[in-house]
């Protein structure tokens, strides 16, 4: 819309015909672009609906000769045990998102609403943490995890390694920087007078954070939650490195179970991949408004 408005905003009033033309060409481009984006997805759906013997005999660039069926989807669902792995992902994503938001909002609150000496420095450190590629620290991290004892009630092998809590922890660590950056920028738009008058009224800092700032930040929190959920849901790396038990891994790594040692049924794999993508699509649709807002959240200061 904004693009359309910009295109049709010359100083003089344009000729109606020219305007129609530019509209048409705009839509032409948009439709073409959406087709380019939709094509791989549509093709994956198409192949997922075909049987492997059909594509082995006729190739992938052919019309279905054995009809279309959802057989691959049901097989992927049971063979890769998808429901079980969806649950594994939830074990990681839900606590990960909640704790990240709590920690990040506390931090953002204290550095945006109070004047400390090192406000900017702290924020810079957190932001700089975002620039660190996760892969760089993997070897020391692996050994730290392997050598960190945990009590038995949180870890079934007495270590941080190969545990949900370990994976959740590293997600929190890596997402907090970004979330703090975004939330603090958002909180800067809340005038400090609110905090100050709450202080005058006798509320303590935690109370102000929980009862005043968090409710005011609801849109930002919702947007962040959507983003974080997608980030953590799509993560492949941490669970792969920091876990060794196949049955504990989240859904994106479970997709590998559909890939054979030599022979891979790509139609089945396509079906599995589509199924694994469903939750993040659902989250996106449900929180679409927040998601789009999240993209520009904190981009400007109030």
């Amino acid at each position: 819309m904004a693009v359309a408005a910009a295109l049709t905003r010359p100083r003089r009033r344009p000729q109606p015909r020219r305007r129609q033309l530019s509209r048409a060409s705009l839509h032409g481009v948009l439709i073409a672009m959406s087709l380019v984006w939709l094509f791989p997805l549509a093709w994956a759906v198409y192949e997922a609906l075909r049987s492997i013997s059909d594509t082995t005999l006729n190739g992938y660039l052919s019309l279905p000769s054995q009809g279309l069926s959802i057989g691959n989807f049901t097989t992927a669902w049971t063979q890769a045990n998808l429901p079980y792995f969806y649950l594994n992902t939830l074990y990681i994503a839900v606590p990960g998102v909640i704790v990240t938001l709590l920690v990040a909002s506390m931090l953002a609150f204290s550095i945006s609403q109070f004047n400390w000496k090192f406000n900017v420095l702290v924020l810079m450190i957190f932001t700089a943490g975002n620039l660190l590629p996760a892969q760089v620290i993997i070897i020391p991290l692996y050994w730290i995890y392997l050598n960190t004892p945990l009590p038995d009630f949180v870890s079934d092998n007495g270590l941080l390694y190969d545990q949900y809590i370990g994976v959740i922890l590293i997600h929190i660590v890596f997402q907090t920087g970004f979330a703090t950056f975004v939330l603090s920028n958002y909180m800067k738009t809340i005038t400090k007078e609110i905090t100050e008058s709450a202080l005058v009224d006798g509320a303590n800092v935690l109370r102000i954070w929980w009862s005043i700032i968090l409710p005011l930040c609801r849109p930002a929190l919702a947007a962040m939650a959507t983003l974080l959920f997608t980030f953590i849901y799509n993560d492949f790396f941490w669970a792969l490195i920091l876990m060794k038990t196949g049955d504990k891994r989240p859904i994106v790594s479970a997709l590998n179970n559909l890939q054979g040692e030599f022979f891979t049924n790509y139609n089945l794999l396509a079906a599995g991949a589509l199924l694994a993508a469903v939750p993040s699509v659902l989250v996106f649709i449900a929180f679409q408004k927040h998601f789009v807002r999240g993209l520009t959240l904190g981009a400007t200061k109030g």
Binding site: Y142, L146, N157, L159, Y161, D162, L240, I241, K244, T245, G246, D247, S253, N256, N257, Q259, G260, E261
Partner: peptide, 21 residues
């Protein structure tokens, strides 16, 4: 039994054997 998909198992073998196999 701990079944890990074939590709991952192979990629991870070094760290697997040094960890808690």
């Amino acid at each position: 039994l701990n079944t890990v998909d074939h590709g991952t198992f192979q990629d991870q073998i070094t760290s697997y054997l040094q960890g808690t196999p």
